[in-house]
Amino acid sequence: MKQKSMTALVSAFSRAYHSENNDIKIFNDSVARLLLSEQEYSQIEKSMAQGIQFFNPGFSGSDVDALRWIVDNQLSPSPLGRSAYAEQALRNAVNFGAKQYLIFAAGYDSFAYRQPGWASQLHIFELDHPLMSMEKQKRINSIYEKKPDNLTYLPVDLALTAIDEYLFDHTEFDRSKLSFCSLLGISYYLSKENFTNLIRGISNTVCTGSTIVFDYPDQDTYTGKAGERVKKQAMMAGNAGEAMLASYSNFDMEALLSNCGFLIHEHLEPKEITKQYFAEYNQANPQHIMSAFDNVNYCLAVKK
């Protein structure tokens, strides 16, 4: 794994761009811009604008217009929609007694540094590959004098480590407390076996009533039936050395979760995601309509 994840950088860029350029926001990440250097931000701006013909053949307009089109259509829908969904679900879980928030493959997630008052009683755990975790902490340390008291970094390679055994060894994690686990953007990059092992490991670790939230690619994602945006996203990830590996039908996912001790509480497909999380933004920005990403579903499941 590279020290810098290109998909994590582009995701942070898309969240930052959206927050800085819109009054009505699908998801407001006020910290994302701080996590990127001026050079990184400008390089991503430039490379994306120059790639407009890949994303939208025949496009005519300025580089500024090209960048806006790419961000709104290709880059932002996934990180904005799934983050909005996950943090709304987290707040609901806190209202029902969740005390621990585990962010798997945290990347440049910034929740701990913009946490609202209702999150103050949470113990937040950021789990990520040791190199990625170290690199993220270097960025954070250049911005903030100290980390929040309720945040713990846990370096771990999710593809190689049994998560239940790993968490059992960390006394900061309390198995008796309700936990909320975010696994955003993970299911694409793990094999089905590794993703199943991760879900099973979480199930073996958290107590009954704990929650997991994640997005996943449907069964048509890597076929000719996939949307054009998805095909381009897969190509981008592959070119960055972060190939997408798996996809699931609704039946597959329900069976996987049930076998691992989870029941689906909510399942959303793209049209419903757009309706719930993009409508207000689209009403305010009819010239820059955004829709949830093709072939990507959101799932909220509870430990039986």
Rank of each mutant, 00 (worst) to 15 (best):
K2N: 14
L9V: 05
A16R: 08
A16Q: 08
Y17L: 04
Y17D: 09
H18L: 08
D23H: 07
N28V: 04
L35N: 05
I44W: 05
K46I: 06
M48R: 09
M48Q: 08
Q50W: 02
F55I: 05
G58K: 01
S60E: 15
D63G: 11
D63E: 15
L67E: 15
N73A: 06
S78N: 15
L80M: 09
Q88M: 14
Y108I: 04
D109K: 00
F111C: 03
G117Y: 03
A119L: 13
L122I: 09
H123D: 08
H129N: 14
H129Q: 11
H129Y: 13
S133L: 13
K136Y: 03
E145P: 07
K147Y: 15
P148E: 15
P148R: 12
L167K: 01
K177E: 13
S182A: 15
L184F: 07
I186G: 10
S191A: 03
S191P: 04
E193S: 13
I199Y: 03
S210M: 04
I212S: 01
F214T: 01
F214N: 01
D218K: 12
Y222Q: 03
G227F: 05
V230S: 12
A234I: 06
Y248L: 07
N250P: 02
E254F: 07
G261Q: 04
F262Y: 14
F262Q: 02
K275E: 12
A279F: 10
N282T: 10
A284G: 03
I289T: 11
S291P: 04
A292M: 11
N297V: 06
